[in-house]
Amino acid sequence: MAENNLSTTDNGDVKRSSFFSLRWKLLIGFTVLFSVVFAAAFYWFFTTATNLALGRIQEDLSDTVQAAVEGVNHEELLALAADGVPNDAGYSDDQRFNNQLDWLEVVHQIEPRAWPYVYIRGEGENEVFFVADLWARYDDDRSASFMEPYTSTGSLIRGLDELTFRLNDQGEFDTYTDSFGRWVSAYAPVMNDQGEIVAAVGVDFRAEYVDNVRQSILSQMLTAFLITYAILFILVFAFSQIFTRPIAQLTDAAELIGEGDYEQDLSEIGAQRFRDEIGRLADVFDIMVEKVYEREQKLLRQVAELRIEIDKGQQSEQVDEIVETDFFRELQSRAAKLRQERDQDE
């Protein structure tokens, strides 16, 4: 995958450079690209599915709290709040109290996720009093006692004016968690026959459904990601091998040519059914190799001819050096004298 290549600079120093395969670059590039696309798709799908789940549960919650309001006996409720007496358990033995719980029980039986309660406005600022809470029949620790006061600056007090949902810090409808679980809540006002607001109904919905949707999305998307990731990795690996094979062949051929072996057949690389830039590169490279070979052969011939001329010049210089010596001149003089004596004898 990665190798260390050595190259020499003009000064003769050895320069170390890293080689990183094109195949692995393609693999990493496609992997990163797929991860980014998948993350964006996952975020969109997760957000959309969560919002749909929240929208569905919000619609159910709205229908439930408004239906609960319709069944509240407001006259009995106000009378109970005015003169009802709490018992030792913190609730009330008054039949009117049980009548209120009976209606809240009906709401719960129709919508098991719903845990309704009824409250009225107090005399103090932002003060409310819980009159009846269905949890009184199921769990004392979770239930508000009869006429228990509470100060609210949020949705609970706004529920005495209009249909209100409990929102998060960003002002969005969302689940919240307390020591008893995960919930969503809504509040709606109760009106008398004159249209005056006299109380309010609150409904807490168990919100495990939303968490189940989120968890289901996470598990399904993770499985889909792993399967798709494996398939994509195999496809990209195979594609990168096909894509880089001719480049690797060109590289090997270039190394051999650099060592002086010009007998490299690049026709197979260029002879593709569907020609592309790599095929054209192979053709150009083949032509370049042929021209380089011709230039090298021409240069070798010129060097050989120059060497012959240099040898002849050296021979001429050596002859001149011999001729110019006193010894050679003396030999010439003796030879001339011998020829003269021979001519006289004849």
Rank of each mutant, 00 (worst) to 15 (best):
L306M: 12
W24I: 07
A81S: 02
D141E: 14
E172N: 11
F173E: 10
Q170A: 14
E148C: 00
A41N: 11
V128C: 01
R121G: 08
R166L: 13
F327E: 14
P86S: 02
T8H: 02
V203P: 00
R137E: 08
E268G: 15
D102C: 03
R23F: 05
S219K: 11
E317H: 11
Q241P: 02
F34I: 07
I242V: 15
A336R: 02
S267M: 02
L134Q: 05
D169W: 04
P116A: 03
L6K: 10
D252T: 09
D326W: 04
F285E: 06
S185L: 11
E123C: 00
F130G: 01
N99M: 08
R23E: 14
I227M: 09
G159E: 04
D169F: 00
I120T: 06
I310L: 13
G71K: 00
Q215P: 02
A144Y: 15
L156N: 01
Q241S: 12
S17E: 15
N192W: 00
E70R: 06
T153V: 10
V203L: 05
A230S: 10
A282I: 04
N212P: 03
Q220A: 13
G55I: 11
T64C: 03
A271F: 09
E196V: 09
D345H: 10
V203G: 03
A335V: 10
E105T: 15
F30N: 09
V131A: 02
R339M: 08
R113A: 06
L235I: 12
R275F: 07
A207L: 09
D83A: 07
D286W: 02
I231R: 04
L160G: 01
S185T: 15
L281Q: 06
T228S: 15
S35E: 07
F205A: 11
D276L: 02
V184Q: 05
L167D: 07
L61M: 13
S7Q: 13
G55L: 09
M288I: 09
F225Q: 00
F237Q: 07
V184I: 15
A144L: 08
N98G: 12
I234T: 08
A53T: 05
F42V: 05
A114R: 01
R206D: 15
A136P: 00
F46K: 13
R158C: 05
